[in-house]
């Protein structure tokens, strides 16, 4: 049996980056999947956003690009090497900021302490315009809401099953996600993802055809306030070991003080922009 081509999943950065599990292939040539908190099995993904920066970490003969693409909810981290010729060619010419679309495969890294990072190995990168990006946001919102709604219904069920979910009108693909979300993550809060959808759709409405990106044009929304920023900075200092503080730990600490993930992302982005903190490696934040 020939395996079908992997579907390019539509999902926002906040859902992808919050993933903590993966389904690693044992069989040769079988695909790896990142399992997101809403239960998506992601092997290939497709997103659009602003290319924020790019760094060539390779040499002249062997370029190696690290890049960040920001959607309205968070940042996708891209790594392109010699086996990704098309993305390499595009990245070497394209100057950030630029609105791009990316099709890529999952790339994961688990640290010794078990912290899990998901980034992207791009297959192709291309310039897009604002209406294209807006349509992607709409499509991705639809798929995300579909998963949220199925998951919420699963939480209500005593013995959830695909049949029961189908009776409630959920498409099979969303039902499968919901059951997997429960299996891997247990009962968890989905508000962050509903908020992400809202923020993304709002960005489309407010941008009204302009490429407004929260992380780009306005690093920190005014209503976040300096005191929250100071709190986050002190949390980072508190948690910092020799190499910095783990993003996950910062997130946990912030959750405890009811600072949500998206606000946190924005604040850290702002702190990075202001040069108050830096990111020695992905997932580590260190204060200056």
């Amino acid at each position: 049996m020939v395996r079908g081509r992997e579907t390019a999943q539509r999902l926002f950065a906040v859902e992808y980056n919050s993933s903590r599990f993966e389904d690693r292939a044992i069989e040769e040539n079988a695909p790896n999947y990142v399992i997101t908190p809403l239960g998506s099995h992601v092997n290939r993904l497709f997103f659009m956003g602003v290319l924020m920066n790019k760094t060539n970490t390779g040499t002249g003969d062997l370029p190696n690009f690290k890049a960040e693409v920001r959607d309205p909810t968070g940042t996708f981290y891209l790594y392109a090497g010699q086996y990704q010729p098309q993305p390499l060619a595009v990245l070497s010419h394209l100057e950030p900021p630029a609105l791009v679309g990316v099709v890529g495969k999952v790339r994961t890294f688990t640290k010794e302490d078990g912290t899990f990072y998901s980034s992207v190995k791009p297959e192709s990168i291309f310039k897009v315009d604002v209406p294209q990006r807006d349509r992607w946001v709409l499509e991705t919102s639809r798929f995300t809401l579909e998963r949220i709604k199925a998951y919420e219904d699963v939480l209500e069920m005593e013995e959830p099953s695909l049949e029961l979910l189908a009776e409630k009108g959920h498409p099979t693909r969303a039902g499968e996600c919901a059951l997997d979300a429960l299996r891997h993550y247990g009962r968890s809060e989905v508000k962050a993802y509903a908020d992400a959808v809202k923020i993304a759709l709002m960005a489309v409405v407010e941008g009204n055809g302009r490429p407004v990106e929260i992380g780009n044009a306005e690093p920190v929304k005014e209503d976040i306030g300096e005191d929250v920023k100071a709190t986050v900075l002190s949390i980072i200092k508190e948690l910092s070991g020799e190499r910095g503080a783990l993003y996950r730990d910062i997130m946990k600490e912030c959750e405890a003080r009811s600072i949500d993930k998206i606000t946190l992302e924005e604040i850290i982005q702002a702190l990075l922009d202001e040069g108050q903190v830096y990111e020695p490696t992905i997932g580590l934040i260190k204060s200056i």
Binding site: P131, D134, R135, L138, S141, L145, V197, L201, V205
Partner: peptide, 29 residues
């Protein structure tokens, strides 16, 4: 065996209007 292949007789770019749907989803949320 290699998957499904479409042999389209016609193809058109779908520049569907999206603002109304974006707003109506926001209302339901």
């Amino acid at each position: 065996d290699f998957g499904s292949t479409m042999l389209p007789g016609s193809i058109s770019e779908d520049e569907f209007p999206y603002m109304d749907e974006v707003k109506s989803i926001l209302e339901t949320m």
